[in-house]
């Protein structure tokens, strides 16, 4: 067992304490998108026939030469380092990969990546920020609408779309229109409550 007496004391000033604190906070806020930029500059080689895809990703233009059979989900995760969308089934059966294309929710695992040429793709990385959460994200925290968190990005993308579509006016409607997103931890009660809370703060699309 080690304790304070094993350690050397170092003189530090209050200023150093504050600086250290600041540095910690900064590095803790390093966005995932930064990773995306580094890794997209070192993209792995593509195998098989490729196709060029130009699209907007979270508001930024992007062009990729990509294997024509790749899914949008694998493009986001394995090429762009945008790992918020998750793979839970790879067959459109769970909703963990939900993203928006031109503002509409889709299953990115069943979307051929080449199809997003000329389209606008929004992922969870494009929703809210660390110091300004989207109302739906805040509601998910308030109602603890998550446990392991793996399906959560997909749930939130689906939930925002659910409100914008006008399918969030009753709990029954929410349950039905959120049934494409499986939560194995069973956070459904919290998810419905979150959507009811956030809906008035979100404009219908």
């Amino acid at each position: 067992m080690s304790g304070p007496h094993d350690r050397q004391s170092i003189e530090i000033t209050r200023r150093q304490v504050l600086e250290a604190g600041t540095i910690v906070t900064m590095s803790g806020m390093l966005p995932v998108a930064a990773e995306a930029q580094t890794s997209s500059s070192q993209l792995p080689p593509e195998n098989g026939s490729t196709v060029q895809v130009s699209f907007q990703i979270n508001g930024q233009p992007s062009t990729l030469e990509i294997d024509a059979r790749a899914s949008l989900l694998d493009m986001l995760r394995e090429r762009l380092g945008l790992v918020g969308a998750k793979k839970g089934c790879d067959h459109g059966q769970c909703g963990a990969c939900t993203v928006h294309i031109d503002g509409r929710r889709v299953a990115s695992c069943l979307t051929v990546a080449a199809k997003v040429d000329g389209r606008k793709v929004t992922t969870i990385e494009g929703i809210g920020s660390a110091d300004a959460l989207h109302p739906m994200q805040q509601a998910f925290i308030d109602h603890d609408a998550l446990q392991c968190g793996y399906c959560t990005p997909g749930q939130i993308m689906a939930a925002i779309a659910c409100v914008k579509e006008g399918h969030a006016s009753t709990p029954e409607d929410i349950r039905e229109y959120m049934s494409g997103n499986i939560c194995r931890c069973g956070a459904y009660v919290g998810i419905v409550a979150s959507i009811e809370q956030a809906a008035p703060q979100i404009e219908r699309g």
């Binding site: 459109g92 509409r104 929710r105 889709v106 299953a107 069943l110 689906a158 779309a161 579509e165 494409g180």
Partner: peptide, 9 residues
């Protein structure tokens, strides 16, 4: 049929 995500595709 299916889910709203799939009906959007």
């Amino acid at each position: 049929a299916a889910s709203q995500q799939l009906r959007n595709m």
